[in-house]
Design a protein around this nucleic acid. Sequence first.
RNA 1: GCCCCAGUAGCUCAGUAGGAUAGAGCGGCUGCCUUCUAAGCAGCGGGUCACGGGUUCGAAUCCUGUCUGGGGCGCCA
Length: 561
Amino acid sequence: MLVRDLIAARLRDAVDEAQRTGSLPPFDLPQSGLVERPQRADHGDFASGLPLRVARTAKRPPLEIAQLLADALARGTDDGPIGEVSAAPPGFVNFRLSDDWLRSQVEAIRTAGEAFGDVDVGAGRRVQIEFVSVNPTGPVHVGHARGAVLGSGLARALSAAGFDVTREYYVNDAGNQMELFYRSVFARYAEALGRTDVPLPEDGYQGAYLVELGEELAGRHGPRYLEMDEAEAIAELGEEALNRMLDVIRVDLDRIGVEFDVWFRERDLYAHGQYEDTMALLRERGYTAVRDGAEWFTSSALGDEKDNVIVRSTGAPTYFASDIAYHRDKFGRRGFDRVIDIWGADHQGHVPRMKAVMQALDLDPDRLTILIGQLVTLKSGGDIVRASKRTGQIVTLGDLVDEVGADACRYFFLARAAESQMEFDLELAKRESSENPVYYVQYAHARIAGILRQAAERGVTWEDGDTTLLTDPAELALVRRMLQLPEVVDSIAVTLAPHSLPHYAVDLATAFHWFYDHCRVLSSDPADAPLMKARLKLTEASHVALARTLALMGMSAPETM
RNA sequence: GCCCCAGUAGCUCAGUAGGAUAGAGCGGCUGCCUUCUAAGCAGCGGGUCACGGGUUCGAAUCCUGUCUGGGGCGCCA
């Protein structure tokens, strides 16, 4: 249980008790926001503005209520986390953590190890996060990097929060765009074999990577596919090309720590009946209408601005049609409690229709969350960098990772709130200096590792260290900061906004750097041994906390720098 | 025209289930390395939270109007 929630529970108890004994009149407690982190450290570790909120209904001055509650809470705090409780104008109850308890947590953090920071708000509920899902017609573009890092970071945080998380990539291997891709591949293949009578389709894929792929396929198979039925050849070569593209995509994403549990094929929805079943269900429930020779999903009746075509007048289903079947499959056959889709800003217009789909399928719309990542502007110094092949600039995700490295990519994309447009400064991200927060955080980890390494080299052991010797303000400040990690994880589970993690990482690094400057750990003087051992335990706990924080961000934790 | 997102320090951004004196990093200026990594630490300066109304004991945070920037309004995905 989070300390914050424990304090909230104590506060509720104190109110109940006061109301029972008649020292406070009856009033309803707010459901949330009972206990918060005050901005100023001298207000304590936690605070509650409850008296201010209930003063009117209680018909008592807020400060009086605060004092009454503070007095009640101060009794029986003994050896728990709560140290001092005080009332402060205009009507706050402030809580300060007990120093003894803080010191005891050093041991708890060391022991928790890689599980430090875990909370259990998820209670094993199944969450699917679907992200990236770029059409496999080429390498992942730099524009998709943000969504990739956001989804992957969210997945890590939700796992730590106790959810059973499935990371999924929806492979659009059916439909118009893929047909175009398959025919483009075939044209490049023929071209590589010297044939000039198989032109690239109009609006076909122009990328140089397909020329290479065509040559590769020609080298491997020779003219075999030119000698067979063209439709069959396109289908077979296309499948092979698709798999090659998925490999390329997988490798690029893997380089920035983005991995998937499931690569779901759109085609399977057609092959295994989900598409037909879903269409039948929509028709049965009266959510479709035939107009102008096409079949429409009548989402305007469910709050959308307009209806959307699901089956074209040509008889071919739209992307939206399979997407409906896909989402029904997520909740129905696969039984996810909750689904999170991460889309780019260019798709935000589709949110209302997906919400309409949920209603049509008789599913609670709140079980589907669509996160929209706003656009990213690449900059170098003060200049905007356009993703352009012609100018030799960064185009693919792979280019970006080559340029600035995986850790900087993760950090900067993760550090910005999804709904804000962001600038990605390539120069800053590349800089290996104090100006770069990536190094600031990793440097703290390297310093910690250095101390532990040298202690081991000197043959020092610290298992018997006595953490009650930790009394320096810098030591206690470091423990306080470490203990915030579970709160950060908990809040991400609620807000689905993992950008608090990089900010926390910087704060944690700051706390360690401060400790490092104020408190010398290693000493060869025997008189210093007890304090050294205690500080080694604290250093080890810091190692645990910082390594976990970096792991949650998908960043490396260097032992030396 | 309609819909979505944003506007906070010179720059990049946090802070928004309403709370106490609005924060960080960078850039600028000052100090600190014979001792565990100075990729560090300490300090100084820097704000009409785009603007106007409203709700509230209390608003950067909620409501509303305006302005500015980005995105979207296809039988494309």
